[in-house]
Amino acid sequence: MKSRLTGKLYTSTAICAALALSLSLGAQQTMAAGSETNAQAQAQAQTPAAKSSIETTGSISAANHAEAGKEARNLIDESLASVGQMRQDEGFREVLSRAKGIYIVPEYGKGAAIIGGEGGAGVVLVKQDGEWSDPAFYNFGGVSLGAQAGGEAGAMAFLLMSDDAVNAFKSGNKITLDADAGFTIVNWSGDAEASWGKADVVTWSDTEGLFGGASVGVTDINWDDDSNMAVYGAGTDMTAILEGEAETDEADELKAALPG
């Protein structure tokens, strides 16, 4: 009797253990399957959105890059036209030939907003050993002094006559060219030819009366990251461009138009 009971107990115990093991394995498989299903569901739910976000971001970046390149090329063409206007004045051609650099802003201001208001995009080229660098792109915030209220938008240029004026553009952002920054600014006019010899900066405009006869400076001149990157590629800094270490075929005509 005892032997049969013991055998039954062993059999029951073995059956219970087998059942427990089976249930445990089944639960683990169910949990694993559930986790895999949840992961797949999450991936299916997230992947389209993630792809959409990546594709949208990439598309916007590419579009911005293309637009910046287009604007940069237009700015170079407009700067070339401005240089053509400057060269029509025989007296100014001499000043231009002696300049160590030039900041050309083909279109500045909008109507009455000219004083301390709308700024402009421009290019800076530096001359070394009779050769002009390719253009570096800068924006500025406003004219600091003397612009005539209500004046029309027009082309402006700032001839950099001294090393200090040139080096200001290599120093970084928030550049200021005015008397407060220690620069002597002279406005160009046919009857003021004798005064430009001592100037750090000679200003020029194709809009008569824009400066109202007063000395003019510019404030908040900043490096234009988008345009410079679009033309020269990522990682190109302002010093490399202004020292002739970066080049673009887009500016060949503009450099040729400036006297060496």
Rank of each mutant, 00 (worst) to 15 (best):
M1K: 03
K2H: 08
G7C: 01
S12D: 13
S22M: 07
S24I: 06
Q29Y: 11
Q29K: 13
A33R: 14
T37A: 12
N38W: 03
Q40Y: 06
A43T: 11
Q44G: 03
Q46Y: 09
Q46V: 04
E55V: 12
E55A: 09
T56M: 12
T57W: 04
A62I: 04
A63S: 15
H65R: 15
G69Y: 05
G69S: 13
K70E: 08
S79I: 06
L80E: 14
R87K: 15
Q88T: 14
G91K: 13
R93I: 07
E94K: 14
R98G: 00
I102M: 01
A113T: 14
I115P: 03
G120M: 01
L125T: 09
V126Y: 07
E131C: 00
W132Q: 05
P135N: 11
F140R: 01
G151K: 04
A155V: 04
A157N: 08
M161I: 05
N167Y: 09
N167E: 14
T176R: 12
D178C: 01
V186P: 00
N187A: 09
W188V: 02
S189P: 04
G197F: 02
D200C: 02
V202N: 14
S205L: 01
S205M: 01
D206E: 13
G212Y: 15
A214G: 12
V216W: 07
G217H: 12
N222A: 07
W223P: 02
W223R: 05
D224L: 01
D226I: 01
M229I: 02
Y232N: 11
T236S: 12
I241A: 09
E247Q: 14
E250F: 07
A256Y: 05
A257W: 08
P259R: 11
